[in-house]
């Protein structure tokens, strides 16, 4: 129990330190004649502010710096300029396959995931009998631990005895294809991960869509119905615009999540010949080979990709996202 006790003691010390800091911030600001309300406000957000500076801002800057260095932890970082990036783009045999797999996965899983979640949410928004039970079942993928799910998928995709192949093999045979080795054959790795993401459709996204659908005012549908709008038109011209801010948020969250998939990959252990997911490649480079500079450069490339994609969605959102309170 030695390590536990040590951590617990340090935890309490840091906790006390942060509380003390809050008091100090308050006293100090009061001495500087800051309004009481403002001083209390700053004091209350101190824990986050310190965390933001120490665990977000500083690491961001540090990792930007490291990406221009060669750093193996044992010797101090050695400035190499753009060498890491030059190497990544021209000589790294793992980089392009990793980018390809990661991006393809995001491009396939995000649209399917968001559209699928919306469809399922619309089905579950109906007042069907026993809907409570179905909803609970549909929450399963959100609730089950990632590691348990990843292990389960590895077993389901098992080429010999996995559940999936017991259904798939006869179909494949009809088309003259042999038994798919999902994680062993590079051809099937991407489809396997897309199938896994399909199962997750009913996760958090669906819960949020379900709530969003309930917030669409009923009278809009009634008016449209009186005007003779059919089901599809009501969906297209009422449902979609009204929940478009939520769709937008889901797309952005989906992109960020899909580009950083890690745990499922680590536990299913697919053949590296299909390419590795970027976050796993970064982990290997940084924490198994201790090439921290190179890994930081990779991380920044991934960050840039996420940023560009998010900005693209943001740009396009002006055309299709409707905010009710907004005036133009």
């Amino acid at each position: 129990m030695q390590p536990h006790l040590a951590t617990a003691i340090r935890f309490v010390i840091v906790l006390a330190g942060v509380s003390g800091l809050m008091v100090l911030v308050h006293r100090g600001l009061r001495l500087l004649n800051v309004r009481r309300e403002a001083a209390t406000g700053y004091a209350l957000i101190t824990p986050w502010l310190v965390g933001f500076l120490v665990f977000t801002s500083f690491p961001m800057i540090a990792s930007a710096y490291l990406s221009f260095t060669d750093y193996n932890i044992l010797q101090p970082p050695n400035w190499v300029g753009l060498e890491n990036f030059r190497r990544i783009f021209t000589r790294d045999i793992d980089f392009w396959p990793a980018i390809r797999l990661t991006l393809l996965y995001a491009f396939l899983s995000v649209p399917i995931g968001v559209a699928g979640a919306l469809v399922v949410a619309m089905l579950l928004a109906n007042d069907l009998r026993g809907i409570g039970i179905y909803r609970t079942v549909y929450y399963l993928p959100t609730v089950l631990p990632e590691v348990a799910v990843a292990l389960l998928w590895r077993w389901i995709f098992n080429p010999q005895a996995g559940l999936l192949n017991r259904f798939v093999v006869p179909v494949f045979r009809l088309f003259g294809l042999s038994r798919p080795d999902w994680f062993g054959d590079p051809t099937y790795v991407l489809p396997a991960f897309v199938i896994i993401s399909l199962w997750g459709i009913t996760g958090v996204n669906m819960v949020i869509f379900l709530a969003a659908l309930k917030n669409v005012p009923l009278h809009l549908y009634e008016v449209a119905f009186i005007d003779g709008a059919g089901g599809w038109k009501r969906f297209r011209h009422i449902t979609v615009p009204m929940i478009s801010p939520v769709i937008f948020l889901q797309v952005v969250r989906g992109i960020i999540g899909a580009l950083q998939i890690f745990t499922v990959y680590a536990f299913t252990n697919p053949t590296p010949r299909a390419g590795k997911f970027m976050s796993f490649y970064i982990y290997q480079t940084g924490f198994q080979q201790f090439r921290m500079g190179y890994a930081s450069a990779l991380a920044w490339i991934l960050f840039a990709i996420i940023l560009v994609l998010t900005l693209m969605v943001l740009r396009s959102s002006e055309m299709w996202v409707y905010y009710e309170g907004e005036r133009k």
Partner: peptide, 8 residues
Amino acid sequence: PYVVTLIP
């Protein structure tokens, strides 16, 4: 993304 702050 968490990968950016992971190493530092």
